[in-house]
Amino acid sequence: AKRKAVTPGAGEHPLQYNYTFWYSRRTPSRPANTQSYEQNIKQIGTVASVEQFWRFYSHLVRPGDLTGHSDFHLFKEGIKPMWEDEANKNGGKWIIRLRKGLASRFWENIILAMLGEQFMVGEEICGVVVSIRFQEDIISVWNKTASDQATTARIRDTLRRVLNLPPSTIMEYKTHTDSIKDNSSFRNTKIAV
């Protein structure tokens, strides 16, 4: 179905891009093939201004209060949070693993950095994801071109700054091609020191 275009309201502060929130939840026993992933991922809203963002965000459950195997995704409008999307297929993501209890704060800070255009990498950012898992939570930042090392380095450094990460924090990068190959988001990553 065609959706009505989302635009900033009168007197609101426009964002550089419109962003769409998505939510997904998986029963761990079911196979995570592309079809079931696409069926499980639900578009929940699009925002075009700072004020629209806050109105929407304030009604969302905080990721730290979610249970089970679930994800919030915030992507530029028009980009599906899937490896196979045209905007993602040559891309990859930075991964930060968090101990339980930190996800809500990190999620908010990373969203604000993306909405405020703090990464300074042109059109490269596709979106951000918070993944709630049983033992740990994971924040990821997706960009368009996995092979562009200047861009990925700049994203990594911005993440360290906006999330105030200690220098010892392990950061991992994984290309979506590798994720498709081993059908896993967070296994077999490359560790950057």
Binding site: E51, W54, L112, A113
Partner: peptide, 21 residues
């Protein structure tokens, strides 16, 4: 074109504006 950049402090201030609530 010009890029619309907001720092965290500004975005947090907008959170409390009447339009955002």
């Amino acid at each position: 074109g010009t890029r619309i950049i907001y720092d965290r402090k500004f975005l947090m201030e907008c959170r409390n504006s009447p339009v955002a609530r």
